[in-house]
Design a protein around this nucleic acid. Structure first.
Length: 578
DNA sequence: CTGGTTATTAAGGCG
DNA sequence: CGCCTTCCATAACCAG
């Protein structure tokens, strides 16, 4: 596309003959002697390079004027300064780097180039290098005894853990998890702040009734959508340093606490309405931890708000346990080396391109977890007995989401194989991991599927696809065979590209009388979109002064009384809509 | 069918 | 203000 456009542009330039500029150019050339020069532009020689460049510039400028591009660009800028397109600075609330603080760690010495120094290379080369990770050294066909003929791995520091994880899998205390954020984000008050955050959370634990709030909403949730806004500057804060991969709300109705996980494994807590006190005046209610070494792609609170599940690409699932005040490791994938034989995730890491992709609580019993991997594996972990109930290969491509129907036995998986598959997990127990299985129902898309979730009522299955659709299938769990057409197909631009997390449309987690969902959007001005899942209609595209970037990952607060939504963007900022 | 390469995309940080 | 980096996303394409 780009290359053809460029080609057209140049051909226009060369085709434009018989212009005044040509005459001017020849005048300019006449001043210079034509015979001895090497500086030639459009068949005319110039005395010096500078003169030729001058001529070239004149020609280009003239062409630009003639093309009308200058006017077009000027009028575009005028429009851009208007209301709709104005560039807004991102919110500075929340995490900030203190540039005055000095990094106490000694910087690594610069590597020197042997080639430039004129030194004979030793045949070793660096095949793959990741900051802080393993370095793979390959030897380019050398047979010298000093140089290994095979690839060798060596770690640049001694105490590295499997897959560069934060530790060996033992519990992380509050202090551990805070200190892991590193110097850049660490403050003198960080540990104290984190302890305060824990304290707040443990107080909330006692206030949550396990059955949820009994109070009825003043009006239906769908009607509340219209009242929502994102105009107050206090509805945005930077909560994690990097791109957001997951968002969740603590279930408390008394205090609004949002959590989010980013690309690097940071986990941020935000007490949204925290009053500026002595402790947190600098943090705007934000507390940062780093319990993982890779992107935190799933985050979910249990119903009582005592445990936060987090899954990371580093191959681990952790539980932030408020009662025990630690981050415990609930699951970790390992390769098939003997030393890991006793581990729950033994042999799951098949090496290249393996990572854990998605995890969620099993709502029949929150001591159990569903898990999916980049290689198409799907598992069910029973934490009570420390066993995998099943561990099956349900696809040969990555599985992006797993969702259990409220009936307790229909499982929907969706991913890169462009399929949404429904399985009866009652048939899974006891099966060997190599078993060949067939889903009882499949929906096939032309592109891969970002997510497929059952609504809390179980009535609808909502899928977000790279074919730019949001599909709603009613009573999918009752169907058999191939689902040809969804009941609703909403056109929705889902090409988030490489730098934004993919969209995953999310249901309101507790509303069973209304089918309400939220999804991020690429439209400008930036907005969060709310849909009625029973009609497939967009209720509202919520934009506002504080929504300056695409909210790729969104979710609702579980409260059925007050409708509150949360969006996370690619710079670690959270936006609250209420 | 698999492995390799490249295009696309948004947004903050920095000079 | 404009250039630079991001790089465990996907898809489309090509070669073997």
């Amino acid at each position: 596309m780009v290359t053809t456009r460029r080609r057209n542009a140049t051909s226009e330039v060369t085709a434009a003959k018989n212009t005044n500029i040509e005459d001017e150019l020849s005048e300019l050339a006449a001043e210079s002697s034509p015979t001895t020069s090497n500086f030639i532009f459009k068949g005319v020689s110039y005395n010096s390079y500078e003169e030729m460049v001058k001529a070239k510039r004149m020609f280009n400028n003239e062409m630009l004027k003639k093309s009308g591009l200058l006017e077009a660009s000027a009028s575009f800028r005028e429009n851009a300064s208007g209301v709709t397109m104005k560039k807004v600075q991102a919110s500075q609330r929340g995490l900030r780097v203190d540039r005055k603080r000095k990094d106490p760690t000694v910087p690594l010495s610069r590597r020197k180039s042997s080639r430039i120094a004129g030194v004979q290379a030793d045949g070793m080369y660096i095949e793959d290098e990741r900051s802080g990770g393993r370095i793979v050294i390959g030897a380019a066909g050398s047979s010298s005894a000093l140089i290994p003929s095979e690839k060798v791995y060596f770690d640049d520091e001694k105490d590295k853990f499997y897959n560069n994880r934060v530790n060996d899998g033992s519990d992380l205390t509050i202090q551990d998890a805070v200190e892991l954020v590193g110097h850049k984000w660490m403050k003198n008050t960080s540990v104290k702040n984190a302890e305060h955050c824990f304290e707040t959370l443990s107080k909330l634990r006692d206030e949550i009734s396990p059955t949820g709030s009994k109070e009825k909403a003043s009006c239906s949730l769908v009607n509340q959508v219209d009242r929502m806004s994102v105009d107050n500057e206090k509805c945005v804060a930077k909560v994690v340093p990097d791109r957001i991969h997951s968002v969740a709300f603590h279930p408390s109705e008394h205090k609004l606490i949002a959590v989010t996980g980013d690309k690097k494994g940071y986990l941020g807590f935000w007490e949204v309405d925290a009053l500026p006190t002595e402790n947190d005046s600098e943090t705007d209610g934000v507390t940062l931890f780093k319990p993982h070494a890779g992107a935190i792609n799933s985050l979910e609170w249990n119903k009582s708000g005592s445990k936060l599940l987090s899954l990371s690409y580093d191959g681990t699932v952790r539980l932030f346990d408020i009662n025990r005040q630690v981050f415990t490791e609930a699951f970790a994938a390992y390769d098939n080396s003997d030393e890991f034989k006793s581990k729950l995730g033994y042999g799951m890491d098949e090496g290249s391109k393996f990572y854990t992709q998605y995890a969620c609580y099993d709502h029949r019993n929150e001591e159990c977890i569903f898990l999916s991997t980049s290689l198409g594996g799907t598992g069910h972990i029973d934490l009570r007995v420390g066993k995998m109930t099943f561990d099956l290969s349900l696809s040969n491509k990555k599985i992006n989401s797993v969702s259990l129907h409220p009936n307790g036995h229909t499982l929907a998986t969706a991913g890169l194989d462009c399929e949404v598959n429904l399985w009866d997990i009652r048939k899974f127990t006891g099966l060997q991991s190599g078993s060949k299985l067939k889903p009882f129902t499949t929906q096939i898309s032309s592109r891969s599927i970002n997510s497929a979730f059952f609504s809390p009522s179980g009535k609808n299955l909502l899928t977000t696809t790279m074919a730019n659709t949001l599909d709603i299938i009613s009573d999918a769990h009752l169907q058999n065979g191939l689902i040809k057409n969804p009941n609703q197909r909403i056109k929705h631009h889902n090409q988030t590209g490489r730098w934004l997390s993919t969209f995953m449309a999310q249901w309101h987690p507790t509303a069973t009388n209304e089918e309400l969902f939220v999804v991020g959007s690429m439209s400008k001005p930036r907005r969060m979109e709310f849909f009625d899942g029973s009609t497939g209609e967009m209720i509202k595209g919520l934009d506002g002064e504080c929504l300056t970037a695409v909210a790729s990952r969104c979710c609702f607060h579980p409260s059925t009384r007050n409708l509150i939504a949360l969006g996370g963007n690619s710079s670690g900022r959270l936006t609250i809509a209420r």
